[in-house]
């Protein structure tokens, strides 16, 4: 598969995964770009052992995890106020609320639910995260319950 084609096919999906992880439009865009830089560098090492989607989502989710290090280095609260100003990108408050809730989950749960919402098979999610399929199923169930609960509490229905 050509890089350009991959880029066009996966940009939206990777961006949403990153957005679910950090819930910050600019950081998510940075993370997505970093992901594609890695993809671009490593494309020739990709062997067709796994699906290309699994491969890309692994890179993306690992890159999100690495973001934790940067977060520690530059905590958001240290930024001048005008920089952390929220930009209004999403139209519906419900969408914003969903992403906010997801970004508040434990780190690996954010990845798992994002992949589920991207409609990846649970077997594939298991391969990306490194859990058993049964474990993934249970986790997805619990996360969805948690999200539903938050939506109810917030009166978003």
């Amino acid at each position: 598969m050509e890089f350009e084609q991959i880029y066009k096919t996966y940009w939206d999906r990777i961006f949403r995964l990153c957005m679910g992880f950090v819930n910050d439009y600019d950081i998510a865009q940075d993370l997505a770009q970093e992901t594609f830089i890695i993809v671009w560098q490593k494309l020739d090492t990709f062997r067709n052992e796994s699906a290309i989607g699994t491969w890309i989502f692994r890179i993306a989710s690992n890159n999100c995890l690495r973001q934790i290090e940067k977060e520690k280095r530059f905590p958001k609260s240290d930024l001048p106020i005008h920089l952390s100003e929220e930009k209004q990108h999403s139209i519906e408050p419900q969408i914003q609320f969903l992403y906010k809730c997801i970004a508040e989950l434990p780190e690996t749960d954010r990845i798992i639910i994002s992949l589920e919402l991207e409609e990846l098979k649970q077997a594939e999610i298991a391969k990306i995260v490194g859990l058993s399929e049964a474990n993934v199923r249970v986790k997805i169930h619990r996360i969805k319950e948690k999200l539903t609960q938050k939506f109810k509490e917030n009166g978003q229905r």
Binding site: E4, Y7, K8, W11, D12, F15, R16, M19, G20, Y25, Q29, A32, Q33, F36, I37, W40, H89, S90, I91, E92, Q94, I95, L98, Y99, S114, L117, E118, E119, H141, K144, L147, T148, F151, K152, Q156, R157
Partner: peptide
């Protein structure tokens, strides 16, 4: 059928506005 009590998370998830991919920007960063 999702057991998420009729909240269609998948639909909401996909409605997130997405920044358009810009290839030149990416290459500059590389």
């Amino acid at each position: 059928m999702d057991n998420d009590n009729n909240i269609d998370f998948k639909d909401l998830w996909k409605k997130q506005s997405v920044s358009p991919p810009d290839m030149t920007d990416l290459l500059a960063r590389v």
